[in-house]
Simulated assay, not measured.
Amino acid sequence: MTIRTMISPARYVQGPGAIHRLGEHVAQIGSKPLVVADDVVWGFVGHDVEASLSAAGLPVDRRGFGGVPSAKEVDRLVGEITSSGADVVVAVGGGSTIDAVKAAGHLAGVRWANAPTVASTDAPCSALSVIYTEDGEFEAYRFFPRNPDLVLVDSQIVANAPAEFLIAGVGDALATWLEARATSRSGSPTMAGGLPTVTGTALAQLSWDVLWENALPAIDAVRDKQVTPAVEKVIEANTLLSGLGFESGGLAAAHAIHNGLTSVAATHGLAHGQKVNLGSVAQLVLEGAAPSDLREFIEFTTAAGLPTTLTEVGIRPDDADTIRAVATAATAEGETIHSMPFEVTPNDVAAALTSIDRHATRIRNNAHLPTPKPYTTQH
């Protein structure tokens, strides 16, 4: 029997000032929350979180986050949750904080909620966490039996953050349709544990359509810290549509290549979505995409401020050993690249990655877009 699966968070809330209703929604989940946020995030949102929880009659107990969602950090947070006696843990911050909290909440046996302060990844809505080594290298996916009970996004807080976060989210979300399309063609299972539903695949495509129409004006708006209809649509595409689409539509080559890129120390300063975007370019090359499709994707994502070459993620295109290491990691057993509708070998990935720089540079020069500049951690 063919089983198709669609999963989602219990409640999604988005809008300017939504943070002021966090307590109201958390009170429907538990009576003793533990909030996890790093010092930077707490510095600009802590007062509003405290006020909202207090207004809802909830105690305020906040603990810090160590910076990387590693197994060690997850275990530390489990201890914090257990010692506090919390019945719900609330992640306030970016994708790393959220992934660590989801994993810790699951192990501690409590419910969990997410209040992302940026729209840089599709982590907030999913029932999985990406776990890294303490050095920032991809280690494993951890899957949970349920999605978050609440995802609450204050769009003004997102707009107040540096535009680079929203740009990274666009890179992550654009991959959603490319990967869901490949998964649908191959008949492979999704991250939700079944074959893709029509709904999951359609939401993945919708995220793509929303971004192509709204990403560039939204990026311009958040550079001025403004919330416009385009910004609201892009936040939703990056967070909800991409979150549902990747999980219930499927991952394929783009995220596997991202995971391979994390094996290179030079890429560790880059955002998740920046590396995913290069993975999307490589996936299009692997698919033998029409030249016009590849050109349009490179032009659009370059205009958005995303990397489309190895050079921009700190890898020389003539560094065969490093490229081979990325390709080997990307095609490891169990990686999502094996959801492509054809076999993909390390040689295929290495060839695709090596070919990107020359081709993307020519496309960018023809379109009068910036020439790729080498990335360094000090860049």
Rank of each mutant, 00 (worst) to 15 (best):
N277V: 09
Q205R: 15
T5I: 06
A55F: 06
T322V: 04
G57F: 13
P16C: 02
L128D: 10
S292I: 13
N238Q: 14
L270W: 03
D318C: 02
R364E: 04
I337R: 02
D87K: 04
S52Q: 09
P189N: 03
D321G: 00
P145Q: 11
F144P: 00
G269F: 01
I81T: 07
L284T: 10
A192I: 01
E312T: 01
G30T: 10
V74C: 02
D209T: 15
I219N: 02
C125G: 01
R11G: 01
A360T: 03
Y375L: 07
D75E: 15
S355E: 09
M340G: 05
V60S: 08
D75Y: 06
P291N: 12
I323K: 00
V78Y: 10
T228H: 06
G105T: 02
S339E: 08
V276A: 05
I323N: 00
A254I: 03
T117Y: 04
M340L: 14
N114C: 15
L58Q: 10
L286R: 05
R181K: 10
A161V: 10
T5P: 00
I29K: 03
T371D: 15
P317T: 11
T336K: 12
P59Q: 12
G169K: 02
F143L: 14
L77F: 09
S292N: 15
V118P: 01
R364M: 12
R63N: 08
G95K: 07
S186Q: 07
T82H: 09
P370K: 09
L150G: 00
D99Q: 12
T121M: 07
T117K: 04
T331F: 04
F44W: 15
P189A: 00
T190H: 00
A351N: 07
S96Q: 15
E179L: 02
L261K: 04
A175V: 08
A351Q: 11
D75K: 06
S207H: 13
D224S: 14
D75H: 11
S83G: 00
A202D: 01
V90M: 07
V313P: 10
V170Y: 06
N160W: 09
R185K: 13
G279W: 12
F246W: 02
V41L: 02
V101F: 06
G30W: 05
I337N: 06
A289K: 11
G193E: 04
L174S: 02
G67H: 04
R21H: 11
G23Y: 06
R4T: 04
F143T: 10
N147T: 05
A289S: 15
C125V: 06
